[in-house]
Amino acid sequence: MHQFSIHPMFGTDGWEVAGYHIPFTNSALWMIIAAVGLLIFMIGGMKRELVPGRWQMAVESMTGFVDSMLAANIGPNGKKYVPYIFSLFMFILFANVLGLMPLALFGLHPFTFTSHFSATGVLAIMSFSIVLIVGFWKHKLHFFSLFVPHGTPLPMIPLIFVIELVSFLVRPFSLGLRLFVAMMAGHVLLEVLSGFVISGVNAGLGIGPVVSVLSFILMIAICALEILVAAIQAYVFALLTSLYLNDAENLH
Protein backbone atom coordinates (compact mmCIF):
# COMPACT_ATOMS: atom_id res chain seq x y z
CA MET A 1 0.00 0.00 0.00
CA HIS A 2 3.03 2.21 0.10
CA GLN A 3 2.55 3.04 -3.57
CA PHE A 4 -0.64 4.91 -2.75
CA SER A 5 0.76 7.04 0.06
CA ILE A 6 1.10 10.75 -0.52
CA HIS A 7 4.08 12.62 0.84
CA PRO A 8 5.20 16.21 0.49
CA MET A 9 8.19 16.82 -1.76
CA PHE A 10 10.98 19.34 -2.01
CA GLY A 11 10.37 20.54 1.54
CA THR A 12 7.06 22.16 0.77
CA ASP A 13 5.38 20.60 3.76
CA GLY A 14 4.74 24.00 5.26
CA TRP A 15 2.80 25.49 2.33
CA GLU A 16 -0.52 26.83 3.41
CA VAL A 17 -3.17 28.96 1.78
CA ALA A 18 -5.99 30.39 3.89
CA GLY A 19 -5.35 27.80 6.56
CA TYR A 20 -5.40 24.89 4.14
CA HIS A 21 -2.37 22.68 3.95
CA ILE A 22 -1.31 22.42 0.30
CA PRO A 23 2.17 20.94 0.07
CA PHE A 24 3.55 20.00 -3.33
CA THR A 25 3.23 16.22 -3.08
CA ASN A 26 4.27 13.31 -5.25
CA SER A 27 0.64 13.23 -6.37
CA ALA A 28 0.91 16.83 -7.62
CA LEU A 29 4.23 15.97 -9.28
CA TRP A 30 2.60 13.17 -11.28
CA MET A 31 -0.28 15.42 -12.21
CA ILE A 32 2.31 17.79 -13.64
CA ILE A 33 4.10 14.92 -15.40
CA ALA A 34 0.80 13.82 -16.95
CA ALA A 35 0.02 17.39 -18.00
CA VAL A 36 3.48 17.89 -19.49
CA GLY A 37 3.31 14.54 -21.28
CA LEU A 38 -0.03 15.53 -22.75
CA LEU A 39 1.37 18.92 -23.73
CA ILE A 40 4.33 17.30 -25.50
CA PHE A 41 1.97 14.90 -27.25
CA MET A 42 -0.19 17.78 -28.43
CA ILE A 43 2.73 19.98 -29.51
CA GLY A 44 3.85 17.13 -31.79
CA GLY A 45 0.49 17.36 -33.53
CA MET A 46 0.46 21.13 -33.98
CA LYS A 47 2.37 21.24 -37.25
CA ARG A 48 -0.97 21.69 -39.00
CA GLU A 49 0.23 20.11 -42.20
CA LEU A 50 -2.18 19.30 -44.98
CA VAL A 51 -0.73 15.80 -45.25
CA PRO A 52 -0.21 14.73 -41.64
CA GLY A 53 2.81 12.87 -40.36
CA ARG A 54 2.49 9.97 -37.95
CA TRP A 55 2.47 12.07 -34.81
CA GLN A 56 0.00 14.59 -36.19
CA MET A 57 -2.13 11.66 -37.32
CA ALA A 58 -2.11 10.28 -33.76
CA VAL A 59 -3.15 13.63 -32.25
CA GLU A 60 -5.82 14.13 -34.89
CA SER A 61 -7.20 10.64 -34.33
CA MET A 62 -7.53 11.39 -30.58
CA THR A 63 -9.31 14.71 -31.15
CA GLY A 64 -11.41 13.11 -33.86
CA PHE A 65 -12.30 10.28 -31.48
CA VAL A 66 -13.55 12.69 -28.79
CA ASP A 67 -15.24 14.85 -31.41
CA SER A 68 -17.16 11.94 -32.91
CA MET A 69 -18.05 10.61 -29.46
CA LEU A 70 -19.64 13.95 -28.56
CA ALA A 71 -21.30 14.23 -31.97
CA ALA A 72 -22.80 10.75 -31.50
CA ASN A 73 -23.95 11.30 -27.91
CA ILE A 74 -25.02 14.94 -27.88
CA GLY A 75 -25.30 15.93 -31.53
CA PRO A 76 -24.21 19.19 -33.11
CA ASN A 77 -24.56 20.97 -29.75
CA GLY A 78 -21.82 18.75 -28.35
CA LYS A 79 -19.10 20.53 -30.32
CA LYS A 80 -18.53 23.10 -27.57
CA TYR A 81 -17.70 20.42 -24.99
CA VAL A 82 -14.86 18.96 -27.05
CA PRO A 83 -12.13 20.94 -25.24
CA TYR A 84 -13.38 19.86 -21.79
CA ILE A 85 -14.02 16.21 -22.64
CA PHE A 86 -10.74 15.97 -24.55
CA SER A 87 -8.79 17.45 -21.62
CA LEU A 88 -10.55 15.11 -19.22
CA PHE A 89 -10.03 12.01 -21.35
CA MET A 90 -6.40 12.65 -22.21
CA PHE A 91 -5.44 13.81 -18.71
CA ILE A 92 -6.91 10.68 -17.12
CA LEU A 93 -5.47 8.47 -19.86
CA PHE A 94 -1.97 9.87 -19.40
CA ALA A 95 -2.28 9.63 -15.61
CA ASN A 96 -3.44 6.00 -15.78
CA VAL A 97 -0.84 4.87 -18.28
CA LEU A 98 2.06 6.78 -16.72
CA GLY A 99 1.15 5.26 -13.34
CA LEU A 100 1.58 1.79 -14.88
CA MET A 101 5.02 2.47 -16.32
CA PRO A 102 7.76 0.27 -14.81
CA LEU A 103 9.81 3.34 -13.86
CA ALA A 104 10.88 1.73 -10.59
CA LEU A 105 13.58 0.05 -12.71
CA PHE A 106 15.15 3.50 -13.04
CA GLY A 107 14.68 4.36 -9.37
CA LEU A 108 11.52 6.43 -9.87
CA HIS A 109 8.32 5.56 -8.07
CA PRO A 110 5.34 6.12 -10.33
CA PHE A 111 2.29 7.43 -8.58
CA THR A 112 -1.18 7.04 -10.03
CA PHE A 113 -3.15 10.01 -8.73
CA THR A 114 -6.29 8.59 -10.35
CA SER A 115 -6.20 5.90 -7.67
CA HIS A 116 -7.13 8.59 -5.13
CA PHE A 117 -10.76 9.52 -4.80
CA SER A 118 -9.69 12.92 -3.56
CA ALA A 119 -8.42 13.52 -7.11
CA THR A 120 -11.02 11.62 -9.15
CA GLY A 121 -13.76 13.11 -6.98
CA VAL A 122 -12.72 16.62 -8.00
CA LEU A 123 -12.96 15.67 -11.68
CA ALA A 124 -16.32 13.95 -11.11
CA ILE A 125 -17.76 16.91 -9.19
CA MET A 126 -16.47 19.23 -11.92
CA SER A 127 -18.27 17.20 -14.61
CA PHE A 128 -21.42 17.04 -12.49
CA SER A 129 -21.32 20.78 -11.84
CA ILE A 130 -21.07 21.47 -15.56
CA VAL A 131 -24.10 19.24 -16.12
CA LEU A 132 -26.05 21.13 -13.44
CA ILE A 133 -24.98 24.55 -14.71
CA VAL A 134 -25.76 23.75 -18.34
CA GLY A 135 -29.05 22.08 -17.40
CA PHE A 136 -30.37 24.91 -15.29
CA TRP A 137 -28.96 27.55 -17.63
CA LYS A 138 -30.63 26.10 -20.71
CA HIS A 139 -33.86 24.77 -19.28
CA LYS A 140 -34.28 26.74 -16.04
CA LEU A 141 -36.59 24.82 -13.70
CA HIS A 142 -37.74 22.58 -16.56
CA PHE A 143 -34.55 20.69 -15.89
CA PHE A 144 -36.40 18.90 -13.11
CA SER A 145 -38.52 17.19 -15.77
CA LEU A 146 -35.39 15.07 -16.35
CA PHE A 147 -36.52 13.12 -13.29
CA VAL A 148 -39.92 12.32 -14.78
CA PRO A 149 -39.46 10.17 -17.89
CA HIS A 150 -41.97 10.43 -20.71
CA GLY A 151 -45.11 8.38 -20.34
CA THR A 152 -44.92 7.96 -16.56
CA PRO A 153 -48.41 7.29 -15.15
CA LEU A 154 -49.58 10.13 -12.90
CA PRO A 155 -49.71 8.15 -9.60
CA MET A 156 -46.16 6.93 -10.21
CA ILE A 157 -44.67 10.39 -10.68
CA PRO A 158 -43.70 11.12 -7.04
CA LEU A 159 -42.02 7.75 -6.64
CA ILE A 160 -40.25 7.88 -10.01
CA PHE A 161 -39.16 11.43 -9.31
CA VAL A 162 -37.46 10.39 -6.07
CA ILE A 163 -35.80 7.37 -7.68
CA GLU A 164 -34.55 9.38 -10.63
CA LEU A 165 -33.35 12.16 -8.36
CA VAL A 166 -31.36 9.74 -6.23
CA SER A 167 -29.86 8.07 -9.28
CA PHE A 168 -28.98 11.50 -10.62
CA LEU A 169 -27.35 12.56 -7.37
CA VAL A 170 -25.35 9.34 -7.20
CA ARG A 171 -23.72 10.13 -10.54
CA PRO A 172 -20.74 12.16 -9.26
CA PHE A 173 -19.95 9.49 -6.70
CA SER A 174 -20.19 6.61 -9.17
CA LEU A 175 -18.17 8.58 -11.68
CA GLY A 176 -15.34 9.37 -9.28
CA LEU A 177 -15.37 6.08 -7.40
CA ARG A 178 -15.40 3.91 -10.55
CA LEU A 179 -12.11 5.34 -11.78
CA PHE A 180 -10.52 5.30 -8.32
CA VAL A 181 -11.59 1.70 -7.65
CA ALA A 182 -10.54 0.39 -11.05
CA MET A 183 -7.09 1.95 -10.83
CA MET A 184 -6.52 0.97 -7.23
CA ALA A 185 -7.75 -2.60 -7.74
CA GLY A 186 -5.41 -3.10 -10.68
CA HIS A 187 -2.40 -1.81 -8.79
CA VAL A 188 -3.25 -3.86 -5.70
CA LEU A 189 -3.72 -6.97 -7.81
CA LEU A 190 -0.32 -6.51 -9.43
CA GLU A 191 1.23 -5.89 -6.03
CA VAL A 192 -0.33 -9.02 -4.54
CA LEU A 193 0.77 -11.16 -7.48
CA SER A 194 4.31 -9.80 -7.36
CA GLY A 195 4.23 -10.57 -3.64
CA PHE A 196 3.35 -14.16 -4.53
CA VAL A 197 6.28 -14.35 -6.94
CA ILE A 198 8.72 -13.17 -4.27
CA SER A 199 7.25 -15.39 -1.52
CA GLY A 200 7.30 -18.37 -3.87
CA VAL A 201 10.98 -17.88 -4.63
CA ASN A 202 11.77 -17.46 -0.93
CA ALA A 203 9.82 -20.61 -0.03
CA GLY A 204 12.56 -22.75 -1.53
CA LEU A 205 12.17 -25.87 -3.65
CA GLY A 206 8.85 -27.67 -3.85
CA ILE A 207 5.63 -25.84 -4.51
CA GLY A 208 7.29 -22.41 -4.30
CA PRO A 209 8.72 -22.08 -7.84
CA VAL A 210 5.45 -23.39 -9.30
CA VAL A 211 3.53 -20.64 -7.54
CA SER A 212 6.13 -18.10 -8.66
CA VAL A 213 6.03 -19.09 -12.31
CA LEU A 214 2.23 -19.27 -12.43
CA SER A 215 1.89 -15.92 -10.66
CA PHE A 216 4.43 -14.37 -12.98
CA ILE A 217 2.58 -15.58 -16.10
CA LEU A 218 -0.64 -14.28 -14.60
CA MET A 219 1.05 -10.96 -13.85
CA ILE A 220 2.09 -10.53 -17.46
CA ALA A 221 -1.49 -11.10 -18.57
CA ILE A 222 -2.83 -8.75 -15.89
CA CYS A 223 -0.32 -6.07 -16.93
CA ALA A 224 -1.79 -6.17 -20.42
CA LEU A 225 -5.26 -6.07 -18.92
CA GLU A 226 -4.30 -3.08 -16.77
CA ILE A 227 -3.13 -1.12 -19.79
CA LEU A 228 -6.49 -1.87 -21.35
CA VAL A 229 -8.28 -0.84 -18.15
CA ALA A 230 -6.28 2.38 -18.02
CA ALA A 231 -7.60 3.32 -21.46
CA ILE A 232 -11.11 2.00 -20.85
CA GLN A 233 -11.55 3.86 -17.57
CA ALA A 234 -10.48 7.12 -19.17
CA TYR A 235 -12.93 6.40 -21.98
CA VAL A 236 -15.72 5.50 -19.57
CA PHE A 237 -15.19 8.69 -17.59
CA ALA A 238 -15.34 10.79 -20.76
CA LEU A 239 -18.27 8.81 -22.18
CA LEU A 240 -20.37 9.06 -19.02
CA THR A 241 -19.63 12.76 -18.73
CA SER A 242 -20.79 13.24 -22.30
CA LEU A 243 -23.94 11.18 -21.65
CA TYR A 244 -24.73 13.30 -18.59
CA LEU A 245 -24.08 16.42 -20.63
CA ASN A 246 -26.52 15.06 -23.21
CA ASP A 247 -29.21 14.94 -20.50
CA ALA A 248 -28.54 18.58 -19.73
CA GLU A 249 -28.22 19.69 -23.33
CA ASN A 250 -31.14 17.78 -24.88
CA LEU A 251 -33.69 17.41 -22.14
CA HIS A 252 -35.73 14.38 -23.26
Binding site: I6, I22, P23, V122
Partner: peptide, 11 residues
Protein backbone atom coordinates in the same frame (compact mmCIF):
# COMPACT_ATOMS: atom_id res chain seq x y z
CA UNK B 1 -6.74 20.22 0.44
CA UNK B 2 -3.48 19.65 -1.38
CA UNK B 3 -5.06 17.13 -3.75
CA UNK B 4 -7.99 19.39 -4.61
CA UNK B 5 -5.77 22.45 -5.00
CA UNK B 6 -3.22 20.82 -7.24
CA UNK B 7 -5.63 18.92 -9.43
CA UNK B 8 -7.74 22.03 -9.99
CA UNK B 9 -4.61 24.02 -10.81
CA UNK B 10 -3.11 21.44 -13.15
CA UNK B 11 -6.33 20.33 -14.78
Amino acid sequence: ASQIFWILLIF
